[in-house]
């Protein structure tokens, strides 16, 4: 997993509440058995005017000029500014895969859906919760000022505006540590192998029906 330390990123405002993971990456692209390559189909139904299918070349597809990601001033953005309950719905990790593949490394919103929020940390994306009033202010600023860049510092837990205002955000200590260092969760868990063994040995006595499982 990619480390996340400090990001200086162009901000793109996506002014919709309850953006669901079906909108982030539509279902037909979930047929892929790969982890990579979802970026060109991020927000596919909003981004293009025609219907996208896996395997269909995206080059030359008609773009929706009204969709914010297609506007020239927001090209190469790496910070997504969003509204409440971002990432609701399906647990598909293809959603953060698509966001990451497109180039987003941080998402700022007043709130996130739980599963999506968790999935972001597994993929080097930092989801940042800020007060709705602050988010609203950022929306106005980045719509007004072309080339609006925010600096996200995970270690200091701050989002800094071009005028130098540092806005503090909260993040769970364990998640922060893993993201700062790009650590593999499974490797860390396997260090607890003795405890897992001990737990299983006890549960085999207490609840033997939970072991053995289905047999064909």
């Amino acid at each position: 997993m990619n480390k996340f330390t400090v990001l200086n990123g162009l901000v793109v405002p996506l002014d919709r509440a309850n953006v669901d993971t079906d909108a982030i990456i539509p279902k037909q692209f979930l047929k892929s058995i790969k982890r990579a390559g979802f970026g060109p189909n991020l927000f596919d139904e909003w981004r293009y005017l025609d219907h996208g299918e896996p395997g269909k070349p995206n080059q030359g597809r008609p773009l929706n000029p009204d969709f914010v990601l297609n506007q020239p001033r927001y090209q190469n953005a790496s910070v997504l500014l969003a509204r409440e309950n971002f990432g609701c719905g399906s647990s598909r990790e293809h959603a953060p895969w698509a966001l990451e593949d497109y180039g987003f490394r941080a998402i700022i919103a007043p709130s996130f859906a739980d599963i999506f929020y968790n999935n972001c940390f597994k993929n080097g994306i930092l989801p940042i919760v800020l007060d709705a009033v602050v988010v609203d202010r950022l929306f106005k600023a980045c719509e007004t000022i072309e080339g609006y860049v925010l600096t996200v510092d995970l270690d200091k837990q701050t989002v800094t505006t071009p005028s130098g205002e540092a806005i503090r955000f909260e993040v769970d200590g364990g998640r922060k540590h893993r993201l700062l260092n790009g650590l593999d969760d499974i490797g860390l868990t396997l260090l607890q192998g003795d405890k897992i063994n001990a737990y299983e040995a006890r549960r085999r006595q207490e609840a033997p029906w939970l072991f053995g499982g289905p047999r064909q």
Binding site: S91, I115, G174, I186, L190, I196
Partner: peptide, 21 residues
């Protein structure tokens, strides 16, 4: 009972556990 992402599917396969709060 709760839904998880694919990274956690891999984590459960490998460890039979999940990190949770």
């Amino acid at each position: 009972a709760f839904g998880i992402g694919t990274s956690e599917v891999e984590h459960v396969l490998a460890t039979q556990c999940l990190w949770q709060k």
